[in-house]
Every structure is written in structure tokens, then in C-alpha cells.
Computed example of a mutant assay.
Amino acid sequence: MMNIRCVVYSVARSKIQLGNDVLIIGTGIIGLLHLIVAKLQRGRVIISDPDAARRKEATLS
């Protein structure tokens, strides 16, 4: 529960709006939660991870 609170708080502080570019580095649990919440805010999300398999999974979200 604490993870999602931290993510929602950080996205709220960043004030993502429609069409804003959002870069997420890392596709761990926090990165994926940021991906979901940023997309809900209608940001254009770019996600990066050195592991190609994890990066591919994240792009399917």
C-alpha cells in the first residue's frame, strides 16, 4: 500500500498533464506503478530499462 501512495504523491507533485513527456527509468514495481499512474494522467510515457525482456513487458502495459 505504501508503494502506491508514494507513486501517486510523486505523480501529483510532477503535475503531469495531457501530452507531457514522462521518462521512467527502471521497470521494477515502482517503475511500473509510475507507468500506470502517468498514463492515467494522459502523459506520453517513455520507459527505459537495461533488461530487454523487462522493457518489453513494460511496453505491453
Rank of each mutant, 00 (worst) to 15 (best):
I36G: 01
V37H: 04
S61E: 11
P50H: 10
I46C: 04
I30Y: 01
L33E: 08
G19W: 08
C6Q: 09
I36R: 10
M2I: 08
M1Q: 08
I4S: 08
N20A: 10
L40D: 07
I16L: 05
A52N: 12
G19P: 11
G31W: 01
L18T: 11
V7H: 01
V37E: 03
A52R: 13
N20W: 04
I36T: 09
I25V: 14
I36E: 04
R55M: 12
A58I: 06
V11G: 07
L40H: 08
L32M: 10
V11W: 02
I46E: 06
L32E: 00
N3G: 09
I36Y: 10
I24E: 00
V8Q: 03
V37C: 04
L35M: 10
S10Q: 12
R44T: 12
I47N: 00
I24V: 09
D49T: 03
A38N: 03
Q17N: 13
G19D: 10
D21K: 09
I47H: 00
R44M: 10
V8I: 13
S10A: 13
G31H: 02
I25L: 11
K56R: 14
L40F: 11
Q17R: 13
A52G: 06
Y9W: 11
E57D: 12
M2T: 10
V7Y: 02
A58M: 08
M1C: 07
M2N: 13
V7G: 01
R5A: 12
V7R: 02
M2A: 12
I16R: 02
Y9F: 09
G26W: 00
R42W: 08
G26Y: 00
G28S: 06
S10V: 05
L60F: 08
D51C: 14
I25P: 00
L33F: 09
I29G: 01
R42L: 13
R54I: 03
L35R: 02
V22G: 05
D49G: 07
T27A: 05
V8M: 09
R5F: 14
D21W: 04
D51L: 14
R13C: 14
N3P: 05
T59P: 01
A52P: 13
I47D: 00
S10N: 07
G26F: 01
I24W: 00
Y9N: 15
I25K: 09
D49L: 05
G28T: 02
G43M: 06
